[in-house]
Measured scan of single mutants.
Amino acid sequence: KLATQLLVDLAEGCHTHHFNSLLDIIEKVMARSLSPPPELEERDVAAYSASLEDVKTAVLGLLVILQTKLYTLPASHATRVYEMLVSHIQLHYKHSYTLPIASSIRLQAFDFLLLLRADSLHRLGLPNKDGVVRFSPYCVCDYMEPERGSEKKTSGPLSPPTGPPGPAPAGPAVRLGSVPYSLLFRVLLQCLKQESDWKVLKLVLGRLPESLRYKVLIFTSPCSVDQLCSALCSMLSGPKTLERLRGAPEGFSRTDLHLAVVPVLTALISYHNYLDKTKQREMVYCLEQGLIHRCASQCVVALSICSVEMPDIIIKALPVLVVKLTHISATASMAVPLLEFLSTLARLPHLYRNFAAEQYASVFAISLPYTNPSKFNQYIVCLAHHVIAMWFIRCRLPFRKDFVPFITKGLRSNVLLSFDDTPEKDSFRARSTSLNERPKSLRIARPPKQGLNNSPPVKEFKESSAAEAFRCRSISVSEHVVRSRIQTSLTSASLGSADENSVAQADDSLKN
């Protein structure tokens, strides 16, 4: 292990032709098999893994070397290190390495390699500790012929580059190093199909959405987006994914797998022009299946994007999809995704031109529960009313008269009656009930004795009459309010007539 670390330190600071010789020695160290011998017992696995620490030291050392060589000349050094790393990870899946030390190597290698970024000039870069990406002036992410390196360097940008540029090249004859992302992409596909350690798979799935944002990485080298989509959909639809995973937390289920895969599918929607129609349908189907899991909100957001990006695919699945959405409970976490999906859909009339009455009724059935102001915040309630109004205007004229009683009944049950079921009123009724029952229970537990009763009969009569009056008032709060309003209006009217009579009498006395 110490000798391997010494080789790594020497290679990191070497800029001459001896660098390749040092890498040859490190490569021989990495070539050791990580498969346990067949006769190895389970209690000896930890000791055997400790004997392979030099392999881990070599791989982690290459990660440090690549981070240094990416910004220094010659660029061919970075290319050689990158290829060695990718080849080593491929061996893991070729020979099915399952030892804990092998999983640790893959975890740290993917953690580093999935941080690679590219700008519009195809320059590769890595983020620093502050998250700012520094791009290399010597390494690009696409394949290029050595003699055409300078031509590639002087080509115009596709868009303004992001991030601070690296140091300027030493001279005009500098050759750019090619670090094609397709090599890593193929290893990522192998990981999605064969990885057995949940920690490694979770890391890859968590980092892929951010990497897919940099389309330069994908399009400048032959990366098959179709295969990526197929691998992701197979993970969700195939039963073998959960069987092969180990190291998963207790209670791990298909729902947890959906939570990890759906963000990658959402990021892949922007590549729909490069996906086969069959793959697009598979993607939409997987998102529909996710509606029954805890990732339902993410799936609804993804389907909203699909309705804009892939209208030809979503239009066929939309009638059944809208009916499925009615089975989702009206909760605060689902309110905004569902209502925004319906609001977006209302502005795309070509998608729902074939809707029948059942689909329009489903839209109103989804939106009406969110009009309850005692359960949802003001934004959700306003958005629900907006969706109902928009869809009522957009639905066909023959359907409107049939939906009017349905909508008014839903609004009455969710908006008007919600004020009668407020917690304050319920607590008031509970308190009044307890007050009504309390005197009775006290009389049963403690019967009054005439000799020891010091309270006069008049006081008892007053208290009983007050309790009886309170019971009468607490029967119905709404009736009490109505009666008080009527009494107030009658009182004001009587006072007004009394004032008029007094004024008339005063005038008569003055005349006399």
Rank of each mutant, 00 (worst) to 15 (best):
P161Q: 11
K129M: 10
F219Q: 09
L217Y: 02
E83Y: 09
R246M: 06
G177L: 03
H88G: 01
Y97Q: 02
S87R: 11
L116W: 04
L228C: 02
S196E: 10
S51W: 02
V204A: 02
Q194F: 12
K56T: 05
E250G: 07
Q90D: 12
S230H: 12
T98K: 06
C223R: 03
G131D: 04
L115T: 09
G163E: 10
K94Y: 13
P100V: 02
S155F: 12
D142S: 07
C233A: 04
Y71T: 03
L62Q: 02
A248Q: 08
V140C: 10
S96I: 05
R123A: 03
P160C: 13
R106P: 00
L63R: 12
T68H: 14
Y181N: 02
Y143F: 11
Y82V: 04
N128L: 07
V132T: 10
S87C: 09
F252I: 11
R207M: 05
P239V: 10
S155W: 11
H77E: 05
V187S: 06
M235P: 01
G166D: 14
P209I: 07
V55L: 02
G163T: 10
P160K: 14
R213M: 09
V204E: 00
C141F: 02
V86I: 07
R80V: 04
P161D: 13
K240L: 06
G61W: 00
S76P: 04
L66S: 01
S221R: 02
V59N: 02
I65H: 01
T57P: 01
Q190V: 06
H95A: 08
C191K: 00
V132Q: 12
L188P: 00
C229P: 01
R213S: 08
R123K: 05
T241S: 05
H77K: 01
L208H: 00
P249W: 04
K240A: 13
I218D: 02
Q227Y: 05
L116A: 05
S51F: 04
R134G: 04
P157W: 12
D54F: 03
K129I: 10
H92L: 00
S87E: 11
A109T: 13
E210G: 06
L52D: 01
A50G: 09
S76G: 08
K199G: 10
K153D: 12
P164N: 14
D226V: 04
L236Y: 03
C141Q: 02
V200W: 00
L245M: 11
P161A: 11
S150M: 12
I89P: 00
L176S: 09
G149Y: 13
A75I: 12
L91N: 11
L217T: 03
L245Y: 06
I65R: 01
W198S: 01
S120L: 05
K56W: 04
V81N: 00
A231G: 04
V133L: 08
G125S: 03
T241E: 06
L189K: 01
K129L: 09
L189Q: 03
I101H: 02
A248M: 11
G206L: 10
S51P: 04
Y97I: 02
R244P: 02
A173D: 12
L208R: 00
V140Q: 04
L73H: 13
H95N: 10
R80P: 00
R244H: 05
L184S: 05
P222L: 02
G125F: 02
G156F: 10
S103A: 09
S221T: 04
L158K: 13
A50H: 12
Q194R: 10
L188C: 06
T220N: 06
E53K: 04
P100R: 04
L60Y: 08
S103C: 08
A102S: 07
T68P: 01
L70I: 08
G177K: 05
R80S: 03
D130L: 07
I65V: 08
L232T: 03
L192I: 13
G61L: 00
G61P: 00
L116T: 04
Y93V: 00
G206Q: 11
K202H: 07
R80Y: 02
V204Q: 01
H88V: 01
S103N: 09
P74C: 02
T220A: 05
H92D: 00
T220I: 01
T79S: 11
L245V: 07
Q194M: 13
Y138C: 06
Y138E: 02
H77Y: 04
S178I: 13
S150Q: 12
A173Y: 14
Y181T: 05
P164Q: 09
K202Y: 03
K69W: 01
W198H: 02
I218Q: 03
L66M: 10
V225L: 12
S211M: 12
L232I: 06
G149E: 12
A75S: 10
S136D: 01
V140Y: 08
R244S: 05
L183Q: 12
E210F: 09
G238C: 13
C229W: 03
S103T: 09
D197W: 01
H77V: 01
K215S: 04
T162F: 13
S178E: 05
T220L: 02
S76Q: 11
L63Y: 03
L188A: 04
K240G: 13
R207C: 04
S221Y: 02
E83P: 01
T162E: 13
P249C: 11
Y143T: 07
R246P: 02
E147H: 12
M235S: 02
V81L: 06
A173P: 12
C191I: 00
S150H: 11
S120G: 07
L60I: 13
S87K: 06
E53H: 06
L205R: 00
Q190M: 09
P160D: 13
S178A: 14
T57C: 10
V86E: 01
K202Q: 10
V216R: 08
Q227E: 12
T162G: 12
L188V: 08
G238L: 07
L63E: 12
S103G: 10
S49K: 03
K152L: 10
F185E: 02
Q194V: 08
G131L: 03
L52Q: 11
L121A: 11
A231E: 12
L60V: 12
K215V: 02
R213Y: 05
E83G: 07
T162P: 11
T220H: 04
C141T: 06
E151Y: 11
R134A: 08
R106K: 02
S230K: 06
M144G: 08
R80N: 02
T79G: 08
P74E: 03
R175G: 12
L66P: 00
I101T: 04
L124K: 01
L124H: 02
Y93Q: 01
E53I: 06
G125C: 04
S51A: 10
P161M: 12
W198G: 00
A173V: 10
L66E: 02
S120F: 09
G125R: 01
Y71I: 02
G177S: 09
P74D: 04
L126N: 03
Y181V: 04
L245N: 02
L212N: 00
L52W: 04
Q190E: 11
L208P: 00
H88N: 03
S224H: 08
V216L: 05
Y138H: 07
G247Y: 09
T72Q: 14
K202A: 06
L203T: 12
P137N: 08
Q90Y: 08
R244D: 04
I105M: 04
K153A: 14
A173W: 11
R80L: 03
A58F: 00
I89R: 01
T154A: 13
L158D: 11
